[in-house]
Nucleic acid binder design. Sequence first.
DNA 1: TTGTACGCGTTATCAA
DNA 2: TTGATAACGCGTACAA
Lengths: 323, 323
Amino acid sequence: MVNIKDVAKACNVSIATASRALRHTGYVNKEKRKAIIEKANELGYIVDNNAQTLKKGKSMTIGIIVSDIENFFYNMVLQNLITEFAKYGYRVIISYSFEDAEIEKDCIKFLLSSKVDALIFTPISNTNQDLINLIRKRNIPLLQLFRQAYPEVDAICVDDGYGAYIATKHFLSKNLNKVMLLSVKLPFTPSRSKGYKLAMSEHHIAVDENLIQRFPLGKTIEPKLIELIERYKPEAIIAGTNTFGLDAIEAMRKLNVQIPLIVFDNLDWLKLLEISTIAQPIKEIHEQTVDNIISKLNTKHYISPESGLNVRIRPELIIRKSA
Amino acid sequence: MVNIKDVAKACNVSIATASRALRHTGYVNKEKRKAIIEKANELGYIVDNNAQTLKKGKSMTIGIIVSDIENFFYNMVLQNLITEFAKYGYRVIISYSFEDAEIEKDCIKFLLSSKVDALIFTPISNTNQDLINLIRKRNIPLLQLFRQAYPEVDAICVDDGYGAYIATKHFLSKNLNKVMLLSVKLPFTPSRSKGYKLAMSEHHIAVDENLIQRFPLGKTIEPKLIELIERYKPEAIIAGTNTFGLDAIEAMRKLNVQIPLIVFDNLDWLKLLEISTIAQPIKEIHEQTVDNIISKLNTKHYISPESGLNVRIRPELIIRKSA
DNA sequence: TTGTACGCGTTATCAA
DNA sequence: TTGATAACGCGTACAA
């Protein structure tokens, strides 16, 4: 383990001089600086993050807790966040909560313990209020992404309600009035059914609650779907998630029917199958996220406000063959 | 920032006692311990990782550098690794190299600087030999995943050559001899074309090099594919990646032909489309990876060997309607 | 322009 | 069973 002391000794200078040379800070003789840097490389010296963070009280890292590692869309946003924050000199530390509030608690603790300078997370529940309070007390910039579980904390979400609204409007404009909505049992997200109902009311159509179905994530709904399609004979279907979309396609195939379909979240295979989709506004999401965090970080004495923002970014309807 | 000193003061004990109580180590009066832990929770005390790691010279973390955040299969393996290592008390720190050797260098440096206890990575190139040497000199357990760019370092890979072999065999057994292989221009991975050629030679069929096509990752090959299919009229196609598979399907659709197809990497949409596939052995990969790393970590004075293992795990052929 | 010396928060040793 | 104290590696105020 070669440390700065070793480098200093090898160069016959003091630790302070070596540090100044390597950190490019303060005065140090040009030739000496060059020699020190060279020697450091030669010895394979790498600064110790832990010591540096401990000393400076700043880690130049941003913690991000992602709730679902399988979510392609989350990964896209994450990729952009990593790249963008790097431009500001910040590294991203990623933790995955796997949609589990206990794991989320661990992740938050770990990131706080690591002294991240800011924290972005997709909340699972509102059961970690104590930690949220702690973060706010410490004035660490904090942001909820995709969901808002804590009203006092800023949130940037996709307006899925609006997504459902434009999808429903699309079908209604084609005189397909019996639209079935496969919604998600996910708390803290903008409600798809609200947008659905708004569109219906704008067209003066009574809402048939049987056509609004809610399912939890994580398991196939295909058998249930077959039953529902047979019973209620919808004229169009809006699938609230990708997997619901897959299940809907499979169900229709088995029933040998073709019902117009719009699926949330634009993935590759949807394009291939020429299925209409509600596309996530990836670019807007990561841009607003970076803005939000960086501006908080740049505010010298940032103090978390009493009540949080709730930014809702609108997705886009992409019409293909299926609808 | 409440630290252990604050907790100690609040409890009228010394820092040492507070530390023992909170770390559950050494002797401390039962009631005092309870009081200290309670007070720590009340104050929102969280141990400082940086100080702890600095002091102990051990971070209880394992660094993993993933080359491609979009790769569903990598993410699955990653998820399992996180969960499994947690059982041994290790946290995973994830860095993404985005298939860029320079970023990879940064990631390695960052993880070393963070004092990870072990490092797993998917190498992009063999241009970071200096850092690899450094890691080996420090005797930090090291493992290459999915690719082997440094022969002296242990590697666990999927035997894509075998995948191509069984896929080719399958077609040959059905008397489809003109098999086109869409291979990947990826260095350091087991060669798909080798397996293809082996199968061909076992059936005493001369290899037509025109049928073996190699493409880089990241951009569509559909136009090229249309041309190739028209020119060489293959009787069967093996797509070396998912995206090549998508492109092949699209090309066939445009040409209005149906050619038997097998696609590498079993994703959801392949099942839906009833496309045959070479399925990645996710479970074996993560199990062997965990074994490899944990056993190195448990070897008191682990010394990296002269030459690395090269474990090749065989994928599985899943036959569906498409072939 | 350089070096000395201290402290960041923690753990471990050792003496009490 | 407890507490004083010395490190861990680094950055910097201050003195030289």
